[in-house]
């Protein structure tokens, strides 16, 4: 298996998921299988191919800087689990973000 339990725990933390030991073992297996499958691509010789950020032939897709109507707020908040005074309401966040 290409992943260790420690790596699964790290990925779970980045994804903000709390996993049981049984789940860690299960996801280790499943994620490893995905990685191993993707690793078959490593066999392709790409030494003569320049790196690219995209497989699409598109470049420079841009729009003009014009304001368009936003959504009505009741629609914005319609699916929110919790809302208050026009805000989404979430559990208290203490740490500062990036």
């Amino acid at each position: 298996m290409s992943l260790t339990i420690a790596e699964v725990e790290h990925i779970a933390e980045l994804a903000k998921l709390g996993l049981t030991d049984a789940e860690k073992a299960l996801y280790r297996e499943q994620l490893s299988a995905i990685l191993d499958y993707a690793a078959t691509l490593q066999a392709v010789d790409t030494s003569a191919i320049p790196p690219t950020a995209t497989g699409l032939p598109l470049r420079n897709v841009m729009r003009e800087d014009a304001v368009r109507p936003s959504m009505p707020r009741e629609d914005v908040l319609a699916n929110a689990p919790d809302a208050s005074e026009g805000y989404f309401r979430v559990r208290a966040v203490f740490e500062s973000g990036d």
Partner: peptide, 16 residues
């Protein structure tokens, strides 16, 4: 840019 958080006791309020 990110949205803004307003801290209100046990909750945080999010303005996007």
């Amino acid at each position: 840019d990110t949205g803004k958080l307003v801290h209100a006791g046990a909750h945080s309020l999010v303005d996007l």
